[in-house]
Amino acid sequence: MTDAKKTRSYKLRIWRQPDAASTGRLVDYEVADVDPDSSFLEMLDHLNETLVKKGEEPVAFESDCREGICGACGVCIDGRPHGPVTHLTTCGLRMREFGDGVTITVEPFRANAFPVVKDLIVDRSSFDRVIERGGYVSVNAGSAPDANALPISTDMAEDAMDSAACIGCGACVASCPNASASLFVGAKIRQMKILPQGDVERTRRALAMVEQMDAEGFGDCSNHGECEAACPKAISIENIATLRREYLRAAFRS
């Protein structure tokens, strides 16, 4: 812990938009007395308290667990999804990363498939609809064999876990010039492709999820690699290669 903490002040430019139908704009705010050890979201909490006290409307933003695992939070900070520190969610970002007095621009994750709900909150239900089409193993409760009946090597389990670590925040989409969801979809496809449990539905899954991804208005991948850099869980772009191979394979087999 730092001794005799000195608080900081910031100039903020924050996207305000009352609802999906209205036009939004950047509004300037100043926030003072910020504890440098507080998180970016706690800085916004602090701003909101001062706004409410002044009779103004607080800034709407999404967050929940505030420990980097639920995937609810996520804003663009100076143009970067989740801000300047790599492999970190917005809730994990600390204000000590920002020098005293600097201007910080805060915007929602932008993509056609993520319409703005209010201010910094976007609608990411398109992700759910992609998963609905096949991002699972179809097994009813009660019908499973003994868990150790199917040995899985540590390498395989670790590899699957690397993909399964996705928190569904949408930073990959927001960072992509094409607003592609390929990293998100690829991570789920790859987890299920590696694990033997996913094998039975492999073909159907790849076709259905890709079809839904397209229908939601996500763009295609053109190998910019921004998604991997923006991903708070460091999900590798290799997952997109897997997605493509799985889709091609499925297309030839169907």
Partner: peptide
């Protein structure tokens, strides 16, 4: 006991020993 069976069947990537057991 049944929960672990169910979750493994769903594709939950639990940690494994080198022999492939949980």
């Amino acid at each position: 006991v049944n929960i672990i069976d169910q979750c493994v069947a769903q594709g939950v990537p639990f940690a494994r020993e080198y022999g492939g057991q949980l």
